[in-house]
């Protein structure tokens, strides 16, 4: 097994192009090392992107924030301006693993792992994050929703990797939130996850919302009906009930060791309601 740690994007792309076998990307490694140790994968090569310039940076850009692919959850949670702008995305990343894992785990890695239960992905989808992908033709930007394709599958090509993730400028009177359900209080994988990002108009009504669900389908999905349910409302009981019903209805989970279909559908509604209330309050809304 070959290990490569280039220092430029071009060198990394070149190395990927030269690989015919199974090459895995290493940023934080919190998924990769588990798979290696549990013998789920036997890679021919590992490409470590941590030494590439910019990969560890959180940079202000056009009023938004660009987050390098090797930035850890702990670094994001210690970045005050980022926390103020996108509290939902940051809290979602912060839920992954333990304190030790937080020192390593990355937003990009969580996305690339392709898990429908990835905590940060519903939050990023609600936030309308843009993913910058490096490949043989240079870089290209795609909406985060286009990356997941199914459990363990992404739309990234074998010769591409994620270089950074961009969270757009936060409008006035807006905020976001992420909640997940796990049977424990930490060190667990979402049975249901829900990210909500919303903006209020000057009268305090929800002007625009994005609601995304995780772990209740083959990939993280946006639920436009849930957004519609609360747009134009002050998140009154009727709007909350409609949001709850929309989330429950949109969830298409499986029965497995982590939860039943009925349980997941029900909890999707509960979390949608609870996350929306948090985002609403953070945006300055008053019920």
């Amino acid at each position: 097994m070959r290990y490569e740690a280039p220092t430029t994007v071009d060198a990394a792309v070149e190395f990927l192009a030269s690989q015919s076998g199974d090459c895995h990307m290493l940023a934080g490694g919190t998924d990769l090392l588990v798979k290696l140790r549990s013998e789920m994968i036997e890679p021919d090569a590992i490409l470590d992107i941590k030494r590439i310039e910019g990969m560890k940076d959180i940079t202000a850009e056009n009023g938004g924030w660009r987050i390098g692919a090797a930035v850890s959850g702990a670094e994001m949670n210690e970045h005050e301006a980022l926390c103020a702008a996108w509290p939902g995305v940051v809290e979602a990343v912060g839920l992954i693993g333990s304190t030790q894992i937080q020192g390593r785990a990355t937003l990009a890695g969580n996305l690339c792992n392709g898990s429908p239960a990835a905590d940060s992905v519903p939050a990023m989808l609600a936030a309308d994050a843009i993913v910058r992908i490096a490949g043989p033709g240079g870089v290209r930007d795609v909406p985060v929703g286009e990356i997941p394709e199914g459990p363990g599958k992404t739309s990234l090509k074998a010769n591409e990797f994620i270089a950074s993730i961009f969270l757009p400028e936060r409008p006035a009177r807006s905020s976001d939130a992420y909640l997940r359900f796990i049977p424990r209080t930490e060190m667990d994988i979402a049975v249901v996850g829900c990210g909500v990002s919303l903006q209020l108009d000057e009268s305090g009504k929800v002007a625009r919302a994005r609601v995304a669900l995780g772990a209740v389908g083959p990939k993280v999905t946006l639920v436009p009906e849930a957004a519609t349910a609360i747009e134009g409302s002050t998140l009154d009981d009727a709007a909350q009930a409609a949001l709850t019903a929309a989330c429950t209805s949109a969830a298409s989970p499986i029965d497995d060791k982590r939860g039943t279909i009925a349980f997941r559908k029900h909890v999707a509604g509960v979390l949608g309601r609870r996350a929306a209330k948090i985002a609403f309050e953070r945006a300055g809304g008053a019920a």
């Binding site: 549990s38 049977p183 424990r184 209080t185 930490e186 060190m187 667990d188 994988i189 497995d256 060791k257 982590r258």
Partner: peptide, 16 residues
């Protein structure tokens, strides 16, 4: 056995 690991065999963690 579907849960041969500490992820899905859930012993309590300290914060529980």
């Amino acid at each position: 056995l579907q849960n041969p690991g500490f992820l899905d065999y859930r012993v309590p963690v300290a914060s529980d």
